[in-house]
């Protein structure tokens, strides 16, 4: 298990997503160009929320809580879901009994863009 430092814990509807803080340039207001993380779950998503800036791209989530923590133990991704979301899954963390998927911001944005543009 590889340790990580600092993650953004995000809610997307009923789902949870965790993003490494070192991939987030800023937390911004939602703009028209933001891609909704809810699409990764086949959901439409809320019109409000926050946007995670990654370079010039924005990823929309419902809420963000930054966990500026010391090293967290990361559980590996099972083989059968290694290619989910285009391979953007980096592992899982267990926090207060809840399992959070750790996802690459850039990888998830790539996946959402590919899904939006079709095969």
């Amino acid at each position: 298990m590889k340790p990580i430092d600092g993650i953004a814990l995000c809610r997307v509807g009923e789902a949870r997503l965790a993003f490494p803080c070192d991939e987030i340039d800023a937390i911004a207001a939602v703009g028209p160009d933001a891609l909704g993380a809810a699409l990764a779950f086949g959901d439409v998503g809320s019109p409000e929320g926050k946007a995670l800036a990654h370079g010039h791209r924005l990823l929309q989530v419902d809420s963000v809580d930054v966990l500026a923590t010391t090293a967290l133990a990361v559980l590996p991704v099972p083989a059968v879901i290694a290619r989910a979301a285009g391979g953007a899954l980096a592992g899982f963390v267990l926090l207060a009994g809840d399992l959070w998927p750790i996802v690459s911001v850039g990888g998830l944005l790539d996946f959402l863009e590919s899904r939006r543009s079709g095969p």
Partner: peptide, 13 residues
Amino acid sequence: TRVPGAAPHLLGV
């Protein structure tokens, strides 16, 4: 726990 981008047969983890 739901998995982003998972196929419908993958209910979660």
